[in-house]
Amino acid sequence: MADLDALAERVRGAIPLTRHLAFRFTGFDGATLTLQAPLAPNHNDKGTFFAGSQVALLTLAGWACTTLIAESLMADTGHPHTPVDVVAVEGSQNYRLPLDDDLTLTATVTEDSRRRFRERLTRRGKATLTVDARATNPAGATVCEYQGLYLARLNG
């Protein structure tokens, strides 16, 4: 199981903006990452969750999901200390509803995408991965949908 607190600290250390989002990773099962963030530090002038914070968190969740999958793959192949560099290549989001409460986010990768990603990363040392994410309110209604493409490269 991935150390999600350590990953969050790694993110906060590398990307100062993320310190202000007050997010926390709450789960990862090998295909789906969950993240939560409070409204208080992320609200806009209307008292709802700022769209900029949402897209930052969605992008971050996609990056983290890709990173965890790539690092897990390296551990599974006997190379747990091989550094993996992940970058966002593209992303798009659709805002569905205003959010006047805390945010829960799930970032997911299909089994077929993970399989192709693993094959390419181990064969070529780099691979892209598509991550789908959904932000919800406490009642479970979708407030934002996101799809991002990430590139992972092995650095060892």
Rank of each mutant, 00 (worst) to 15 (best):
L97R: 15
E71I: 14
T67D: 13
G91F: 03
D76P: 09
L73A: 14
T82V: 04
T82Y: 05
P83S: 09
R96N: 05
R96V: 03
T82N: 07
N94E: 08
E71A: 15
A88L: 08
T66M: 11
N94Q: 09
T77K: 03
C65T: 15
D76K: 12
S72T: 15
L73M: 12
D85N: 04
V89F: 01
L73H: 07
A88E: 07
I69F: 01
S92D: 09
Q93M: 07
M74H: 09
V84Q: 01
S72K: 15
E90F: 05
L97M: 11
A70R: 02
L97S: 07
I69K: 00
V84M: 06
S92R: 09
M74E: 12
E71T: 15
S72I: 12
V86T: 09
V86L: 06
L99H: 03
P98E: 11
E90Q: 09
A88V: 05
L99N: 04
Q93R: 05
A70I: 10
P80Y: 10
A70L: 12
L73S: 13
A70S: 11
P80L: 14
S72Q: 13
Q93L: 10
E71P: 06
T66D: 05
V84W: 02
S92P: 02
Q93H: 07
V89I: 08
D76T: 15
T66W: 02
L97Y: 08
Q93N: 06
G91L: 02
S92G: 08
M74W: 03
L73R: 13
G91C: 02
I69G: 01
P80R: 15
P83K: 08
L68T: 08
N94A: 09
I69W: 00
D76E: 14
S72P: 00
T66S: 14
L97E: 11
T82S: 05
E71M: 14
T66Y: 07
T82Q: 06
P80A: 06
P83Y: 06
G91P: 00
R96P: 00
P98T: 09
A70Q: 12
I69V: 11
P80F: 01
P80Q: 14
L73V: 12
H81C: 05
D76N: 14
P83C: 06
L73N: 05
V86S: 03
I69A: 10
V89S: 08
H81P: 03
M74I: 10
P80D: 13
N94S: 12
S92V: 03
V84S: 05
L68Y: 02
L68D: 02
Y95K: 10
P98K: 13
V87A: 03
T66A: 13
P83H: 11
G78C: 12
E71L: 15
S92I: 03
T67V: 13
D76Q: 13
L97C: 07
S92Q: 08
H79L: 03
T67M: 14
G91I: 04
A75D: 09
T67N: 13
T66E: 03
V89T: 05
T66L: 11
H79Y: 09
D85L: 11
A88F: 00
N94I: 12
T67I: 02
Q93C: 09
E90I: 01
S72F: 04
R96C: 01
H79Q: 07
V87P: 01
Q93P: 00
Y95A: 03
L68W: 00
L68H: 11
R96E: 07
A75C: 11
D76F: 12
E90D: 10
V87R: 04
H81D: 08
A70F: 10
